[in-house]
């Protein structure tokens, strides 16, 4: 039997990178997946790539009304949720001395507030015994120069899994954190504000610091997420699973 046969999964930030690779893997494992993202075109391309058993919702996790619309769609189509991967996140370069209030607010609006309400608003239709996975980052335990707001927001995410593990235990809902290291996604080059040259330098620097000597592939995060989403991890709750080639572990 497939690991997620018949399960209903919601993935935020599901149209590219880790979210897309995970949506694809979850469907391969037998799940029905609903993905939310801000860009309609990217969502359509993602749905085409995934091929079947996928529903798309255009929306922004930092807008509460968009989340309401997401869960209304899920409720109408499937009636409940078994798995939530709260993955949408953003980080842009801004050294401490130069960071603006808008930079700080944007980072925390998406990564912390957006994730908080992504989970809260899922609860009324979340099935007891299900699995919630919060996407953090190895930066929750590592300093990242010029990305301090991002790193701090990811530390907040790791903290949520500790409290929510206890709050949701009576419903037998497991809450875990996934902490990817440096992953080959388009985000580094396209959304962080780094120049192409800076992004290339960053990649080379990452590889030299990572014991495995390379960045991870989105599919390698997706396979670990499948483990956390499935009953294979039935005795795992409250953990922070680092999938980072050893970067933050040594």
């Amino acid at each position: 039997m497939k690991a997620l046969e018949g399960k209903i999964a919601v993935i935020t930030g599901g149209s590219s990178g880790i979210g897309l690779a995970t949506a694809k893997r979850f469907v391969e494992e037998g799940a029905q997946v609903v993905i939310i993202g801000r860009r309609e075109k990217a969502l359509q391309e993602a749905a085409a790539l995934i091929g079947k058993n996928v529903t798309t919702v255009v929306g922004d996790v930092s807008r509460l009304e968009d989340l309401d619309r997401l869960y209304a769609t899920v409720n109408e189509k499937h009636g409940h949720i078994d798995i939530l991967f709260a993955n949408a996140g953003a980080g842009t370069v801004a050294p401490l001395a130069a960071a603006t209030e808008a930079h700080f607010d944007q980072t925390f609006d998406v990564n912390v507030k957006g994730l908080f309400f992504t989970v809260q608003k899922a609860l009324p239709i979340f099935k007891d015994g299900g699995s919630i996975i919060l996407n953090s980052s190895v930066s929750n335990v590592m300093g990242l120069p010029a990305f301090s707001a991002y790193a701090a927001s990811k530390a907040a995410v790791r903290s949520f899994s500790r409290s929510w593990t206890q709050e949701l235990k009576d419903r037998n809902i497991r809450v875990n954190t996934m902490s990817p290291g440096a992953i080959e996604t388009p985000a580094l080059a396209t959304t962080t504000g780094l120049t192409a040259e800076q992004a290339e330098e960053a990649v080379a620097q990452f590889a030299s610091q990572i014991p495995m000597g390379r960045r991870g592939r989105p599919a390698e995060i997706a396979s670990a997420l499948t483990f956390l989403a499935s009953d294979e991890s039935s005795y795992i709750t409250g953990i922070d699973l680092a999938v980072d080639g050893g970067w933050a572990q040594v």
């Binding site: 593990t165 206890q166 235990k169 290291g181 014991p211 495995m212 991870g216 592939r217 390698e220 995060i221 396979s223 670990a224 991890s233 005795y235 795992i236 709750t237 409250g238 953990i239 699973l241 680092a242 999938v243 980072d244 080639g245 050893g246 572990q249 040594v250």
Partner: peptide, 13 residues
């Protein structure tokens, strides 16, 4: 395949 030096706690929290 992208995990090394990690700890996986299977401890019910």
């Amino acid at each position: 395949s992208f995990m090394t030096a990690s700890e996986v706690a299977v401890d019910g929290g």
